[in-house]
């Protein structure tokens, strides 16, 4: 029940931000729409999100944002370089790496982060194994691959979500 109330308030907040008005009619309309959405889709909302209401986790999340944005910028410069280079310097392939993260939401964030960072794209996720398409393979040793691709995000995501 508490979970549904929090979800309702969250959706209502997003509605008000999008409509950008706090007139009574707008708020009532938003409340009704949020109520319908919560009643239908409440089950697929991941309950693990509520662990986030914790100062330590929020602190690590704020630290994670610049690390992530820096990785996104580096990955764009890397891809742009490969795109405009006359010989297209790529050594592509799909590698298999392991992660020690447990919760689903942490794994989702890890997969999304890997996709947006230099030269890697998550193809599939089965149990603890990530299959990652890598545009420039530097090593054929799974240990080294795991270290390069996964470790830099794992230490943050472990503190945020696990």
């Amino acid at each position: 029940m508490l979970k549904k109330v929090i979800e309702l308030l969250l959706l209502l907040g997003i509605w008000i931000a999008l409509v950008w008005s706090i007139q009574v009619a707008d708020v009532i309309a938003g409340f009704l729409v949020s109520l319908v959405v919560v009643l239908i889709f409440s089950d697929i909302f991941p309950a693990e999100v509520f662990k986030m209401f914790n100062p330590v986790r929020i602190f690590w999340f704020l630290l994670y944002i610049p690390v992530f944005l820096w990785a996104v910028i580096k990955s764009n410069l890397d891809v742009t370089y490969r795109v405009f280079h006359p010989e297209i310097p790529i050594r592509p392939g799909i590698v298999k790496v392991k992660t020690s993260l447990k919760s689903d939401i942490a794994k989702t964030f890890l997969a999304n982060s890997i996709t947006l960072t230099p030269g890697t794209l998550t193809v599939d996720f089965i149990d603890d194994n990530l299959y990652v398409h890598w545009i420039n393979i530097v090593s054929e040793d799974p240990e080294v691959e795991t270290k390069i691709i996964v470790k830099k995000f794992e230490k943050y995501l472990k503190k945020i979500f696990d």
Binding site: I90, R91, P92, G93, I94, V95, K96, V123, D124, Y131, I137, E140
Partner: peptide, 9 residues
């Protein structure tokens, strides 16, 4: 692509 190094998947 034929030039790929490996395909663990």
């Amino acid at each position: 692509w034929e030039g790929s190094i490996m395909d663990r998947y």
